[in-house]
Design a protein around this nucleic acid. Structure first.
Lengths: 337, 337
DNA sequence: ATGAAAGCGCTAACAG
DNA sequence: CTGTTAGCGCTTTCAT
């Protein structure tokens, strides 16, 4: 395996010049640069990241903290991060932060302390006080995606605005009995996304001058199966059935669509449904939804982080855009008889 | 940031002893061990992975190659890998191998050459001749999951047996017209999984003495949407409609279920459907399927790799188990009238 | 079982 | 713009 000395010898320059030429730091004459690149290419030389990291303190590697990988949203964000980092020549090191305290402790007190990462991206992870302290103690650039962390600049969608928009879409079509499928108290712990969405729903109702009906609001765990179950409850109620449902995630919304179908209802004639995410299945089910772009969120997080690493500017919190995608799951409510 | 010298001083021993005590290599007296551990804990000392890696050549980091992240199967395998590696104190560095030749070249000629990984796991990636050569040239332990790579020990399910089992299940229920939804020529390129599954389907038919009917075999791209589309074609045929469908993935099988419902068919009375995977949605749809356990596959790959790294034994190819999970999507065919 | 010391392969002053 | 050289923080002989 060729080393920097071999390249130096082959190019007829010193190792310092090779280092400068290959890293782009410091001045190198065009001729030396060309000679070094040629030699490096011929020898198949690649800088050793351990040696370079030890000497410079830079690793060209970013740690990514995620709560789960096997989930549409997280996997999408991760893909965006990974793609963007690779483009910049950075490696992506993945840390799955489970609920196991021992494992979490290991991550914060060992893995992240090993001097292996230049910076950290935390995707929707919920951290304890001490964990946040440990993160900050790394004294490395830090960016959050999706979940607000104390003192960590975060990219977020405005969940309240998202659900206000979804609800308003239904109201503007003429619906007055709009059900809400949100988080249960259990999932509520996660960053209050559910409660923010609930607030947006209520705000939209209030702005339309419609009283909130608690009987129309149910909680689920963001899965299709639970969306199905709770939607059946909502739709089975003989005297308080909603004509529309706003669900806080596409998976729950799809569950609601399937529940309505199983009840023999015609969509969207008898029931309108709106979700949130623009999940990969949303189009197939013709689901009207509020799109968020997790892939782009990941890319954006990387862009912010790199700017911070390069000291161009500190990372700052940022609100991400969202967009109403109208498909076939929404229409005017059935005419009253 | 405390270094090994600080620990040595605090423990009253030499840095060599600290290194030995903390790495578990070489002999250390119990008293010295205790003193070192105490000192390290007090000082919050963690071995610098760059320094340790440079000096020892071991990085405690594994590179994982995946074609996509945002997909149930790959995300599950990745989760299994990540969990298992973490348990062993290893980091997971993720490389998404897209179709972009420039990016692929970067991964094989830069990223993997940086001396940052001790070994590589390749999940279902399809590599060119030169890429395989580059991988082997790393001279590091290598394990494949799901897709056979020349010269790389691989964990695989027996795709032929899987689909023979799924098809046989339907035949044993009495079906004689069993449709097949497999890969299209486009996805066929990926490791011949589709064609292996096709072969298993045909074998099961042959064993049951049933002639293959090409009209009952259609290709799709493994998504729910295409499964839906092609199933409609199959089911809409007035004089050659199958009474059962074996789909090479759960997502396509679910698409077929939805297609049948939209045609007003009663499942499983008028149509039986079997998938492959035991996807997270399979249970919700009551889908009978052949389960494979991607999470476990990831864990197994790690176990093999670590044994190879520790020189206990070379990695060897291995066939993974599968299991028929019977739910509500299969039953006897409707009685002929 | 332990310590001294020589690297590991590169970067970054520093001097020129 | 370029070369010399002293580390970066650990591991690992080699003695003892």
């Amino acid at each position: 395996m060729a080393g920097i000395k071999d390249v130096a010898r082959a190019a007829g320059v010193s190792v310092a010049t090779v280092s400068r030429a290959l890293s782009g730091r410091g001045n190198v004459s065009p001729s030396a640069l060309a000679a070094v690149q040629q030699a490096a290419h011929d020898l198949g030389y690649v800088v050793s990241s351990t040696a370079s990291g030890l000497a410079s303190g830079r690793t060209r590697n970013i740690g990514v903290l995620v709560p789960v990988i096997n989930h549409w949203f997280y996997a999408s964000v991760l893909e965006g991060i990974c793609t963007a980092l690779m483009r910049e020549g950075y490696d992506t090191t993945l840390y799955q932060l489970t609920k196991d305290p021992a494992q979490r402790h290991q991550i914060f007190s060992d893995f992240l302390q090993r001097q292996r990462v230049d910076a950290v991206i935390a995707v929707n992870v919920e951290l304890s006080e001490t964990e946040v302290v440990a993160l900050h103690a790394l004294d490395k650039p830090l960016v959050g995606v999706g979940g607000p962390l104390p003192g960590v600049p975060t990219l977020q969608v405005d969940d309240e605005a998202v659900s206000a928009l979804g609800t308003a879409h239904l109201l503007s079509l003429g619906h007055t009995r709009v059900g809400y499928i949100g988080g249960s108290s259990e999932t509520d712990v996660d960053f209050r996304v559910p409660s923010h969405r609930r607030i947006g729903y209520e705000r939209a109702l209030a702005e339309a001058g419609i009283d909130l009906d608690e009987a129309l609001c149910v909680g689920a765990d963001f899965t299709m199966a639970q969306g199905y179950t709770v939607a059946k409850q909502l739709l089975g109620n003989p005297d308080a059935r909603p004509t529309a449902i706003f669900a806080a995630s596409d998976e729950m919304a799809i569950g609601a669509i399937l529940a309505a179908r199983d009840l023999g209802m015609q969509l969207p004639r008898e029931l309108s449904v709106v979700g949130v995410d623009d999940h990969e299945l949303a189009e197939f089910f013709g689901l009207t939804t509020i799109r968020q772009l997790p892939h782009e969120q990941g890319e954006l997080a990387v862009a912010m982080l790199l700017r911070a690493i390069r000291k161009e500017e500190p990372a700052r919190a940022h609100t991400l855009g969202h967009e109403l995608i109208v498909r076939n799951s929404t229409s005017r409510p059935p005419a009253d008889h």
